[in-house]
Write a protein that binds this DNA or RNA. Sequence first.
DNA 1: TGTTAGCACTCTCTCTGGATGAGTGCTAAT
DNA 2: ATTAGCACTCATCCAGAGAGAGTGCTAACA
Lengths: 346, 346
Amino acid sequence: MADQLTERSQNILEAIVEDYIASAEPVGSRAISRRHSFNLSPASVRNVMADLEDMGLLCSPHTSAGRIPTEKGFQYYIDTLLHVRDLNSNEKQNLRKSYRFQGMKMEDVMQEVGRVLSGLSKYTGLVMAPKFSSTVFRQIEFVRLSQGRVLVIYVSETGLVQNKVIEADRSLTAQQLEKISNYLNAELTGLSIQEVRTKLNQELQEERILYDQMKQQALKLSCAALQDEVENQVYVSGASLMLEQPEFSTPEQMRRLIKTLESKKLLVDLLDRSQLAQGVQIFIGSDSSHIDLEGCSLITSNFSNKKGAIGSLGVIGPVRMDYSQVIPIVDFTAQLVSRVLEREIE
Amino acid sequence: MADQLTERSQNILEAIVEDYIASAEPVGSRAISRRHSFNLSPASVRNVMADLEDMGLLCSPHTSAGRIPTEKGFQYYIDTLLHVRDLNSNEKQNLRKSYRFQGMKMEDVMQEVGRVLSGLSKYTGLVMAPKFSSTVFRQIEFVRLSQGRVLVIYVSETGLVQNKVIEADRSLTAQQLEKISNYLNAELTGLSIQEVRTKLNQELQEERILYDQMKQQALKLSCAALQDEVENQVYVSGASLMLEQPEFSTPEQMRRLIKTLESKKLLVDLLDRSQLAQGVQIFIGSDSSHIDLEGCSLITSNFSNKKGAIGSLGVIGPVRMDYSQVIPIVDFTAQLVSRVLEREIE
DNA sequence: TGTTAGCACTCTCTCTGGATGAGTGCTAAT
DNA sequence: ATTAGCACTCATCCAGAGAGAGTGCTAACA
């Protein structure tokens, strides 16, 4: 349906979208005919505008206001009119310098990425850390605490750590724990955490007729430590920047936005969805299938290392976002983070 | 200065504060004389009100509105008039049931505490996790990752874990790492992490004339893992609830509030301050020495275990907060968390 | 046939002024 | 010491007028 637009219509649509992105206000025919040198009178522009409105690409808040792009209009703009320029090496260098990951733990890296993303884009930054279950097992350690409590520590190939305190049989000695961990380290090496989980469960099933008390203990402990993990940690940075945007200027809008950003559930959904595809993805407004993010767009990309730990990051802004500026930032940041993660294992 | 108030003045002040807490609107003399059975005419109430205003306990937004308590007024109310009722055992039981800490990692516990605190109080919950450096050393572990990178894991008595990937000399073998960890575990046992840090640094100094290559490596590794730690992790929950409060109903107020809650810096300051004292503490409005929290009050308490890991939690709400309800919640929650932490080590 | 000038029309936004009502401060009476 | 009475102040609400921006339509034009 898209390319039925004449060149003139496209030019005008582009002009309207861009003016609207810059001003956040309805764009009138006069303004278009003056600011852009189409050599067309306002009246002609109006005719085209009426057509675009019929197609559902524009709409007007009321009779005597200008036009604003609909979500469909933005969609079209992004699909066919937007030219995303690459960052030049200077900008890339600057971006690289913004991030200081030196000697940071994974969590801190994620938080830092969110902060910078938000700072550069002037919108809200989102980062979803790699799920632990999608990483590759490297080592398990047990630390005896007091009163039969045992701290179980899983380490992934990438150096991610997951730990949990488990109530264990008091009779377990340090020697036994060491034996257990040796056994498991041999047994589980090379599996993904997901596989580790199923394998442990299987063996626990088989061993049900507890021939080997200790082995059973071992499996139980290790299993418990992988239970009910809060996966999908999402970091949200710069929510307050969104409140500066005119589309969130009324108390009601502010409340709703903050509530949505705070609950994080929806964000996890979207970032999860984004992981299904590759490269930069854009979700526009209620296209994202949830009213709570009405008026928002989301630009995401994924990062990963060669061992499969996958996370995603992005920027959430008003639909009227400066896509040409934010897209390259998100894109390059994702690459940057990937490279950092890879450097950490390889 | 405080107790120069006659009983009648006190009663009226109390009535005003409580009506204001309930309604968020200026309280008039007529309302007071009717709602509360003082058997005083509005005119008499007005006289008292005028006195209270002179003392700086009340103020009126404009001539023909009622009075609202000043911060000083709230302070007085809290210091002398407020009766904090204890929770009855039923309520305590309910509170206990709200929290499900079963098998949670410290981080998750903290987050959960914040959420519940916010949910119960209808204001914003704050939790500052115990600083790792104030905990007691239990064990150190090294995990060799690829390319000479080593994951250093510190475990505290309480089962808290701190870990970091460190770039190490490639020649380090697994055996050597094990030897190192044995050495350190013997050496450092019983020290607080703070002490561990200084001790490592001292030894590193002494050993400078590197007699013992390996020992030096050991110290360097262990030291590096304790460097630049982001302490003072603060969890903020339910910020959006504050936006429901009438005192944050204008866009400008909302923006400022969210910005402050987001930056967390100020919150860390306040929670740090709260750790200097014991029991429930209350910071009122700009008393908290920063304009950014104008209009807010903070109710905090500390939690700890016997081994000294100390954190604090609290609720941040409008100055016009329902103190009599929130204080016991904060108080009891702090006790609850302490008990949970203690159970984990003892 | 596409383009444009002109014009009536619509709708929002802002400003104004008056009415309303809540609440005060003061004074004089009890 | 308390209270009734009264004049006064000020925010809030509402209606109406005027301005301004922008549209749609029609008729003229190249």
